[in-house]
């Protein structure tokens, strides 16, 4: 099964909508609750990253019996140093975004903790692609 959602950069009033739709789908498909909980954390963080940093993006979700494949692709400034960005506490979020309680530098580590496979690739001035895989039956 495949679903695609559009994500608007800069629009915090819609942040989380796509993740919420995916959560509903996973529940309908009777995916194990612990798996849903983990996927939702990773998805939301990846979605908010697009809202906070990029111009626009897409969330693609592919579900089969074995795994959930999540690909978030954006048009945006890109990440100059992915290793640095992965460090807990490191953030390039704006002061406005931080005031809302985002931008604590916890997003990518939340993602890493909650998926089985994470691959981030980025091109400066073009955008970023985040690929995540969670196995459904393996637990973790």
């Amino acid at each position: 099964m495949h679903y695609e959602y559009a994500i608007e950069g800069g629009n915090f009033s819609k942040a989380g909508l796509a993740s919420s739709e995916v959560k509903k789908k996973l529940r309908q498909l009777n995916v194990d609750n612990q798996v849903v909980k983990r996927v939702v954390v990773a998805l939301y963080e990846a979605e908010v990253n697009i809202v906070a940093h990029a111009y626009n993006g897409t969330m693609n979700v592919e579900i089969d019996e074995e795994k959930i494949l999540l690909v978030l692709q954006d048009s945006g400034p890109g990440i100059p140093d992915i290793e640095k960005a992965m460090e807990e506490g490191y953030s390039t979020a704006s002061p406005e975004v931080r005031e809302m309680g985002f931008g604590a530098g916890m997003g990518l580590s939340n993602i890493k903790k909650n998926v089985d496979h994470l691959d981030i690739s980025s091109e400066i001035g073009k955008g970023t692609r985040v690929e995540m895989i969670t196995y459904i039956n393996r637990g973790r």
């Binding site: 915090f12 009033s13 989380g16 939702v40 809302m100």
Partner: peptide, 16 residues
């Protein structure tokens, strides 16, 4: 328990 009063709080409350 929080002092955040914007809509994103509800997105998180719902997802969690």
């Amino acid at each position: 328990i929080t002092l955040q009063t914007h809509k994103n709080v509800m997105a998180i409350a719902s997802l969690k």
